[in-house]
């Protein structure tokens, strides 16, 4: 209990420092947020143009597609907001030998890396995700009972950990190879598949994104439960299970990597 309270206190101190740093460059974070909003807008425009040509996409209405799309952005945005620092581990912190600083402090290294920075740009994704989910509701025929709403809210932190877990595992590869930024990038890009209903993909792609790099669990399966009330045990249980497995694996790989870490040069 005491350690958890200590962790929260450390987290708060880091957050305050970050906010002070960001207040110095207000214009910059507006640029960043608008940038990420634009990416989503361009994808939405694509969907809108497509749906002006066809009545539905393999049986999915535009509202359902937008719901799935929006739902995929929320955990992605949360992970991006809090745990963006893992990218720096993969791209340059380990390579330049800057990782030494984490080793000299009396805090768990992974925890330190995760809470050290926040990425305000992520608000572009987060805001867009919430707006899309809310605006799609009008076009959906869903009975909004307490079970659905609570299920949706409770599942989001777990889904977030699927992103964080995959990033932790791939970032930790840098301890052996010095640089793993593009490995993170490749696995992270699989979340592109999560934006659309998994039924449009072929069988083997569906299996990969459900069981191996499980981004289908981050939006499609939870959405199946929320939209159609199907199989809550699998549709909510699997994302929880996957997040726990991936995060545990992430911590194990990270700790193993620490032992392999050699600082760079002088």
């Amino acid at each position: 209990m005491k350690t958890i309270r200590r962790m929260f206190r450390i987290h708060r101190i880091f957050l305050v420092q970050e906010l002070k740093r960001m207040m110095e460059y207000k214009g910059d974070f507006v640029v960043g947020i608008i940038g990420f909003l634009l990416i989503q807008l361009s994808n939405l425009l694509f969907l809108w143009i497509i749906f002006s040509q066809i009545p539905d996409l393999e049986g999915w209405s535009i509202s359902e597609i937008i719901f799935i799309y929006g739902l995929s952005l929320i955990p992605k945005g949360i992970d991006h907001f809090f745990f963006d620092n893992l990218w720096s581990i993969g791209y340059f912190i380990v390579r330049k030998g800057d990782f030494d600083k984490y080793l000299t402090r009396p805090v768990n290294t992974l925890f330190h890396v995760l809470v050290e920075k926040i990425q305000i740009d992520a608000l572009g994704e987060l805001i867009m995700g919430i707006v899309l989910v809310c605006s799609s509701v009008a076009g959906l025929q869903v009975e909004w009972d307490a079970f659905r709403i609570i299920g949706m809210i409770l599942i989001i932190p777990f889904i977030t950990l699927i992103f964080t877990g995959i990033k932790t595992i791939t970032a930790a590869i840098a301890f052996w190879t010095k640089r793993s930024g593009n490995v993170i990038y490749m696995f992270y890009m699989f979340n592109d598949f999560a934006k659309y209903p998994a039924t449009i993909y072929s069988r083997w792609v569906q299996n990969i994104i459900t069981y191996i790099i499980p981004f289908a669990l981050t939006s499609y399966f939870p959405a199946l439960f929320i939209l159609k009330g199907e199989n809550p045990l699998f549709n909510l249980g699997m994302p929880v299970l996957a997040s726990l497995v991936l995060m545990t694996a992430g911590i194990l790989v990270w700790n193993k990597g620490l032992k392999a870490y050699e600082s760079a040069g002088s």
Binding site: Y185, M189, I200
Partner: peptide, 20 residues
């Protein structure tokens, strides 16, 4: 690895257009 990541979005697009 970077090219593989880029190619993934191409694969997603292929499936979407097939569905369309």
């Amino acid at each position: 690895f970077f090219m593989l990541g880029e190619a993934l979005s191409c694969v997603v697009m292929y499936f979407i257009w097939s569905a369309v």
